[in-house]
Design a protein around this nucleic acid. Structure first.
Lengths: 201, 201
DNA sequence: ACGATCTGCTTGACACTGTCAAGTTACGCT
DNA sequence: AGCGTAACTTGACAGTGTCAAGCAGATCGT
């Protein structure tokens, strides 16, 4: 796996990246609770203690993987935003779609970053992408805040709805490769949400 | 811990219960990802392999703990329902309050049962309480379904909103003993939800 | 060109985990 | 009293995270 030339030493941090790659792959193959330093090492073709050098403990590796997760999460939302119509309602639909793209495309990673397990919040990369993901939501909501309403109220409303939908879909029965069998499409929920916002504004 | 008379053998399944108690306590003390068969055994005062007899593997113990979790979950909702005004909107508010009572009262257990880890779905107790918790939601929503709307659409709408709110509150930063600092109260979200339902009905 | 140094890894050890096989003990029954 | 079996205990093994020590290749000063 990741078979680079013989086994030269890297001063460029490429093993660090390879280990995160291995971790992401491991999550996908074995599930969100089966991460293991030693198996990441094996997958990357290095000795069992090599990860300990780059991430001093398993929390460090988990944090790096979560950072990768949040980065992909942001990417998914931005991708949908990039091809969205410019009006506020469409942009809101777009980030929600991106949200669900990420959840269905990387269910393991999605559950992992929202597992409630503690990461190293002081990690720069992690903090960057985690806060950026919320910033995207916030900016998109900004245009839809009814006069005289606390913006956070709407942000949390939207976020709760899409997050709850995605998270329930991922945790309920594993026989849903996409979203739950027979579940209403998110667009119908989005319709109700818009009605609520119109009624408020 | 749970110091019963000397160390007599029990034919009544009381060790099984003691082990689940120990597991629940362990989750609270050490976090949702730190469950251990051996430590549950120690906490219950039995040998390291005793849990293996009652739950054949750690998935078995996890399932029993999750069953306990869902049972408390149902209990929290029913308790709020019992003292609620009889009209549909109030009953809906009541189960949402119960939902949040459970999440804030047992954050570890809440994250555990919704961690996405797989349980033994064929376990009778687990299946009972898990499906019952959804049934409570369903029954409460039933009175609020607008004419000509798929009931599941409203159920998922409500469930997503309250679940997303609770789950985000639990996973975002651990310095929130209750719900996030400065977060809008759920009742405001509930207000928007009602507006949406009125606009639909 | 060459030795010193430092960085990136390896090796080895330890305490801990889940799981299984085999042994032991106490309870209920006849 | 004695037996059978349910409810454990004991012991072992492989796998885990973490740490200390060793070691070798890259880089630097000269």
């Amino acid at each position: 796996m990741t078979a680079s030339p013989p086994s030269r030493r890297k001063r460029d941090g490429s093993l660090r990246i390879a280990l995160v790659d291995a971790g992401v792959a491991l999550l996908r193959e074995r599930g969100p609770d089966k991460l293991s330093l030693r198996e990441c090492a094996a997958k990357a073709g290095v000795s069992h203690a090599a990860p300990g050098y780059h991430f001093k403990n398993i929390t460090g590796l988990s944090t790096a993987i979560a950072a990768r997760g949040f980065s992909l999460f942001c990417q998914a939302m931005e991708q949908r935003l990039a091809t969205s119509a410019p009006d506020a309602a469409e942009r809101l639909s777009a980030i929600c779609q991106g949200y669900l793209d990420f959840a269905t495309g990387h269910p393991d990673l999605f559950l992992f970053i929202f597992s409630g397990q503690k990461f190293r919040e002081d990690d720069e990369e992690f903090a960057h992408y985690a806060s950026r993901s919320y910033a995207i939501l916030r900016e998109t909501c900004a245009l839809l805040i009814p006069e005289g309403t606390d913006p956070e109220e709407i942000e949390i409303l939207v976020w709760s709805l899409v997050h709850g939908y995605a998270h329930l879909a991922m945790t309920r029965k594993k026989e849903n490769p996409g979203l739950g069998r027979g579940w209403p499409d998110f667009s119908t929920l989005m319709g109700h949400l818009h009605k609520a916002l119109q009624a408020s504004g």
